[in-house]
């Protein structure tokens, strides 16, 4: 799901109040969704990059409701992230938060989203006129890693709620890679999968919710990478192995697919 909107950028954006005091570098606006703004900044020291998620007040809501909702959402997202981190699910760490002020500071994940990496990789293959099947190993391997990461997420009782290829990041494996090898990393699909943007996540073990997560991801692969869609089976295969009960979810997925979006409502 795209979270950028061009219209709102036209409006002169004031930095969130948390940034009113100085920092080594000016915070950088990364994305602007309907719900929240994401900035790149620093935590405690100039050497520690962080992502700041800021949920501005919504003028159309009653002020009491607005504060209530904002607090709830900040805390909910933080809880989910902390729980995931504890259980070994690859997500950004939570550094700090202020639910009354509507912000959450989390670990900055270096690297790029799978959507972009995949597009670059597919384009490169096309440009280099590589035959089908060549390098598919890398693609398959990426799918496997995705399946494994999503499996681990569901296994700890969390559903993402917005699982798209823009919410999966590929973080370069070696730390030193940040300085030197970045050029080499760009054209490969290598790296650790890190799940990001848990603004719509919830704690659920329901097969339905898990199946919908997979369905959204399947559709995301399909709409942005038709070539990669056919390989989505690899994601599901690995997912199916990742925890007890995963196969039930895969069965549910078939149902969800057939239903299309949702049940029709009775008029």
């Amino acid at each position: 799901m795209k979270t950028e909107t061009k219209q709102a950028v036209n409006k002169q954006r004031v930095l969130p109040p948390v940034f009113q005091y100085p920092s080594a570098a000016v915070p950088l606006l990364i994305t602007q969704g309907a719900e929240a703004l994401l900035y790149r900044s620093t935590y405690l020291l100039p050497s520690i990059p962080c992502a700041l998620k800021y949920r501005p007040s919504k003028p159309y809501r009653h002020p009491i409701l607005d504060v209530r909702l904002t607090k709830h959402r900040i805390l909910s997202e933080a809880r989910v992230l902390v729980k995931c981190k504890r259980e070994g699910v690859p997500v950004p760490a939570v550094y700090a938060l202020d639910e009354a002020a509507g912000w959450l500071m989390i670990e900055w994940i270096e690297g790029e989203v799978v959507r972009i990496r995949l597009n670059e990789w597919l384009k490169r293959r096309k440009d280099e006129d590589l035959a089908e099947g060549v390098d598919d190993e890398q693609l398959l391997e990426l799918m496997t890693r995705v399946g494994s990461a999503v499996g681990r997420l569901h296994a700890v009782g969390v559903v993402h709620g917005d699982l798209t290829t823009s919410n999966l990041m590929l973080r370069p494996r070696s730390r030193e890679g940040l300085n030197g090898d970045l050029g080499a990393a760009v054209n490969t699909l290598e790296g650790d999968i890190v799940l990001i943007d848990f603004g719509l996540a919830s704690q659920s073990q329901a097969d339905e919710d898990r199946a919908v997560d997979l369905y959204v991801l399947e559709r995301a692969f399909g709409s942005t990478h038709p070539r990669a869609e056919s390989l989505f089976g690899e994601v599901l295969r690995e997912y199916g192995k990742s925890f007890k009960g995963a196969n039930v979810v895969l069965k549910k997925l078939e149902e969800v697919r057939m239903r299309g979006r949702k049940r029709s409502m009775i008029g």
């Binding site: 799901m1 795209k2 979270t3 950028e4 909107t5 061009k6 219209q7 969704g33 309907a34 719900e35 919504k58 159309y60 809501r61 009653h62 409701l65 909702l69």
Partner: peptide, 22 residues
């Protein structure tokens, strides 16, 4: 009213952000 309408406005805004409409 305040609550259900806020819900409707929220999902509408999400859709607007998604399709890029205002």
């Amino acid at each position: 009213q305040e609550t259900v309408y806020a819900m409707l406005v929220e999902i509408t805004e999400r859709a607007m952000a998604h399709v890029g409409s205002n």
